[in-house]
Amino acid sequence: MAKVHEITVWARGVIMDKEGRDVINIFAEAAKMEGKHVQAFDNYEDLPDRVLVTVRKYVRLSDEEIEHKYVYGNDQPEVVVVIEATIVKGIDVLLGMKKGGTLIINTNRSIDSMLKFIPNANLLATIATVDADGITGVRTIDFSGSEGGVDTSGIGKGIAAPIVGAMAKVTGMIKKENLAKVVSDVSGMERGYKEVKIKKLG
């Protein structure tokens, strides 16, 4: 069985539900262009229609068909992306991660100040921060497209753009050029790629 790379994205209900979904969809779309088998889906049981609740979104990438595609959740995320930084204060976002993982947080705070909130940072090989709100302006697009509605607003107009740029740089899993074909705000994505701060941990 080929290795399946699991990426879990944490966002908040309603206010950045679409941003979280954009991140997974953009990432999966770009990976698909590189011939990967991909999966991107929301966790609906998180009740994403409730304002500010923590919601999870999942991406899976693999060189071969994903065997556990009907398992509704990533139990061993290799990369965790936190779109709203205060989530780390209350939730063990690294749950299930094996040693050597990656954490990317959208914040303008320093990496060291964020590490204080990650009690199990020993699981991490890499931590990175990107100030997505600073790059695009506080721009979260709110759209309830979750139940079959059609999202014609395009993907990657808001803070999702710099976040996926940062993800490409930090993880090396996808090429920036392919992201550019998918996101609406290409310059925001480029800035995320360039401005992400990365720290390698022991």
Binding site: Q39, F41, D42, Y44, E45, K69, Y70, Y72
Partner: peptide, 10 residues
């Protein structure tokens, strides 16, 4: 099944 099938694309 809700979610497992209804919301996972295949």
């Amino acid at each position: 099944e809700g979610y497992f099938v209804s919301h996972i694309p295949d």
